[in-house]
Design a binder for these strands. Structure first.
Lengths: 109, 109
DNA sequence: ATGATTCATCGTAATATTGCGATAAAGCAA
DNA sequence: TTGCTTTATCGCAATATTACGATGAATCAT
């Protein structure tokens, strides 16, 4: 028990849920919005901006990186992070597709 | 530790993360898509369709209901569930707003 | 080389989520 | 009423997530 039964669902359903999970934390939303605004930043910027511990920010960055939403480039002692536009668009498309389907008669209770 | 520090983030960031969390499970995605297709159903339909235990489906329905994404109407011994178009649109707007902001120069690493 | 800066990772504690059996509540049919 | 169907809720076990201190690796300035 306690583990998601992924085999009961379609690949698309699992993928969409996984994408939603990446966005399901305010710190990760905040990081993405910061990157949208500033275009790039280093881990330390986010520590100052968000007020979470460095280890915690680094962990959230890792999740975003594993999801492909951001990418990091080593720049001397620091790491420059920025959005990955390709994955960002893939996310947008997937959520668009979900929210597209709805006509006004969808509630029949 | 282990609890999200909501006070570090804006109301909008917390709200968006909460919306994403509701969508962050394939069973809830599947339920929403089933409702989009069928317009309405009862809990038992979903138990047959998804293959999760009745208690588990009922729990996911509760989360979707608390989020305002679906509503249930008592119909005799069963409960008819359907989407709430208003909240559905609110979700769409919120995610669109997030994904809107991006120009091609957003990656500068 | 030494020290300072930056970041990732490990280990751990606290908390949250997932799944389901068992049970209860409510309506319906006979 | 009795039994059947349908659903919600409780309680528990398994797993996942969140947060952070401590530590280590890499770079840079002196």
């Amino acid at each position: 028990m306690g583990a998601i039964k992924s085999d009961l669902f379609t690949r698309k359903q699992n993928e969409l849920a996984a994408m939603a999970r990446v966005l399901a934390h305010p710190a990760r939303i905040a990081i993405l919005q910061y990157l949208l605004k500033k275009n790039a930043c280093i881990c330390g910027d986010l520590v100052d901006e968000l007020g979470l511990a460095q280890a915690t920010i680094s962990q959230h960055l890792k999740e975003l990186r594993l999801a492909g939403l951001i990418q990091g480039t080593i720049e001397g002692p620091s790491v420059c992070y920025c959005l990955n536009p390709k994955t960002w668009k893939k996310y947008r498309e997937s959520f668009m597709q979900l929210f597209q389907e709805l006509d006004e008669t969808s509630c029949e209770c």
